[in-house]
């Protein structure tokens, strides 16, 4: 169940125009899950490094590791 949900979330993220997505938006990928369950799945994805957090300080969003990535941005600064 968890693996299936993870795949759905990753697929959903890949098909979105925006690179950064809110938690509520990601829950649309797994409507069969309750919000708290969806959060657990997302946490697992973050732990596995397949999804990353992005925060403005006041709000947190989720993104795929990629070009618009903090690590990449920091690399450019070196």
């Amino acid at each position: 169940m968890s693996e299936e949900a993870k795949a759905k979330i990753l697929e959903y993220m890949k098909t979105q125009k925006k690179t950064k997505l809110y938690f509520n938006d990601l829950c649309k990928a797994v409507p069969e899950l309750k919000m708290r369950e969806a959060k657990k799945v997302l946490n697992e994805l973050v732990e596995e490094g397949k999804v990353k957090y992005w925060s403005s300080g006041s709000t947190t969003l989720y993104m795929l590791p990629g070009e618009d990535d903090v690590a990449a941005e920091e690399e450019k600064m070196k």
Binding site: W54, S55, T60, E73
Partner: peptide, 10 residues
């Protein structure tokens, strides 16, 4: 914006 925490923290 960007980084959020240390390992395991959001």
């Amino acid at each position: 914006g960007g980084i959020v925490g240390v390992f395991g923290y959001g």
